[in-house]
Write a protein that binds this DNA or RNA. Sequence first.
DNA 1: TTAATTTCTTATCATAGGTCAATGTGGCTA
DNA 2: TAGCCACATTGACCTATGATAAGAAATTAA
Lengths: 194, 194
Amino acid sequence: MEEFYNYLSDSLSKSEIDQLSKFLVEKRIGKGEILLQAGSVCNHSFFVEEGLLRSFSIDKQGKEHVIQFAPENWIISDRSSLLFQEPSEFFIDAVENTTLIMFDEEFVVKASELSAKYRSFNQKALNNHIRHQQRRINRLLSATAEERYLNFIQLYPNITLRVPQWMIASYLGITPESLSRVRKELARKNFIPG
Amino acid sequence: MEEFYNYLSDSLSKSEIDQLSKFLVEKRIGKGEILLQAGSVCNHSFFVEEGLLRSFSIDKQGKEHVIQFAPENWIISDRSSLLFQEPSEFFIDAVENTTLIMFDEEFVVKASELSAKYRSFNQKALNNHIRHQQRRINRLLSATAEERYLNFIQLYPNITLRVPQWMIASYLGITPESLSRVRKELARKNFIPG
DNA sequence: TTAATTTCTTATCATAGGTCAATGTGGCTA
DNA sequence: TAGCCACATTGACCTATGATAAGAAATTAA
């Protein structure tokens, strides 16, 4: 719980968080375990205390496409499914053994009632999410595979080292083979990662 | 103003809206006029009463990439720039002569203070935005040019007829030439639009 | 430690989509 | 009415990335 308390500490007092703690569930899951199945309604958000989660879709040809990675102190969920109570198009699973905090919309509602600070905090988080997605769309529209990869390792250096390359390829919208080629080409050009 | 009043009517009473009207500015702009310049901080959101706006980026090679279209009753802005007061990466301009309502964050703050309904309305709008973007990312990762085009005309039939094809191509992340070929192929396959 | 999986690389070939250049087409406007 | 301009189409060619297959390397399990 500690990380999550920390995460909230700017917007809620210790006693307020305690009040809300009945809406929180700590959970440990192993690598590969699934938290959300496409087709089912998402009822929780997941805050990562330790470990790494990811959301992804599976297309008609059975190919996975990574939508998001969530390392420590990140929140992951399917907000559309959550808010509109519609079946999710996405899966969420664990890339590593993970300790997480589950919370539902009731937590958000109660916290919002309790604290204006939390409201604006939450607001900011939503806007931040939009910002990330907007930039990603922009890059998918305009950048080459190599540019997208360079951008990725610069933006998420720690994730780069923790997930298999084929997942990064999937996030970038290319095949693992292509990513391997991109990396080879970068090595040839004397690119030093990090 | 009428459309905008209508848009808000579920979450704010007539008198509440009147109270807030001092934060609203109606504006008319001609086709091609620019509302937001990349590099400058975005201080307003734009509600389209009549007409059509669009946001786009320009990459290093000088190529435009359409991020979003906004026809009647849509809101467009750069939320990240707005909220974090950082220079925008995007332009917003008018695809058609447009009548719009400009409002700033003060409006949003005041409206939020006034009405819990507005707060959740706003919250929903943000989540809806995230949903749209998520689906778009998913499609950019997994669908072919043809699939993306079919999805577009199905999702935005009225926009399809109002904007030049090269803008749709830009939105889809392909060249106008490619879109032309996709359309030709669809015609060959006896695809009937609409 | 070996065996079994999973991941990564490499090579070859195939293809969607990009580039460039030419031509068409319709709507303005002078 | 002609001429212009933005937009759309077409064709020839090119390139980045996908598909497939095989082997190497790394991880995990036994």
